[in-house]
Simulated scan of single mutants.
Amino acid sequence: MHIHNLSESPSILNQFISEIRDVRIQKDRMRFRRNIERIGEILAYELSKSLSFAENKTKTPLGMAKTPLVEDEVVICSILRAGLPLHRGLLNYFDQADNTFISAYRHHHKSDPKKFEVIVEYLASPSLEGKTLIIADPMLASGKSMVMVNEALQGMGTPKEIHLVSVVGALTGVEYAASNFSEDTHLWIAAIDPTLNDYGYIVPGLGDAGDLSFGNKVQH
């Protein structure tokens, strides 16, 4: 898998990453969502450089302008619910993309909260045959959600290529994804942290992206 870790080159992206990690700033949900969205826009821009382009002619008031435009048919797959702000950032740049939505959540065992399984339920998707698939999930912790979502999408056709997009990941999750996706898959990520805690959360990470975006949920 090709790993593109944007934090390796300092940029304005660092400001947004710092703010979503900051426990003081996290109290402002709107700002948290907007920063995730802005990170998604930066990741979309970097990802776009790897796509296929074809020359396009545009008529201006004074003549014809030649511009290379993306020719790939892009489908953005968002993992609900935490992926929605990231999805919006990607869609701001790939505004003609088709969209896939899928639910994947952790079910923690009541007898042992440290143990959990990832459950995939809802799926709405167009055909992925020959398309450029972008799977967006802000937190790449264990990597299981990304892998299970990809497996759930198998019946929707074979994509031309697959790109994974995350905001923060753990080294463990990155390695797990790399071992379960094809070698030509691309991962675009804003930061990679060293480890997971006993509950499967990224350290230092930022907490639960879904809760910080939309509020706490009731655990069943």
Rank of each mutant, 00 (worst) to 15 (best):
S182P: 00
L13Q: 07
N14P: 00
G215Y: 08
Y199H: 13
R81L: 08
A191C: 06
D28V: 05
S11Q: 02
S48D: 00
Y176T: 12
A209Q: 09
K66A: 01
R38W: 07
Y201D: 05
H107F: 05
N35L: 01
K114C: 03
D211H: 12
A141T: 07
G173I: 10
E73L: 06
A141Q: 07
G143M: 11
R29Q: 14
E8R: 09
H87F: 11
P85C: 09
V167R: 07
L90A: 03
D137F: 05
H107T: 03
T58C: 09
L128T: 03
G200H: 10
P68V: 06
V120W: 01
L196C: 00
T58R: 12
A82Y: 08
H87V: 03
S179Y: 06
L123E: 11
D198A: 05
N92E: 05
Y105Q: 12
V23S: 14
A97G: 13
V118L: 07
I192T: 11
Q154F: 01
N5I: 04
L123M: 06
I134C: 02
A209S: 12
E129S: 01
H108W: 07
L196S: 00
S213P: 02
S18R: 11
N35D: 14
I202W: 11
V74N: 08
M30D: 14
D22N: 15
I17E: 02
D95P: 02
S9L: 12
G155Y: 00
N180M: 03
E55A: 11
H2W: 05
R21D: 10
F32H: 05
K114W: 03
D98P: 02
I17N: 00
N14K: 12
L187E: 13
Y199I: 06
V165A: 15
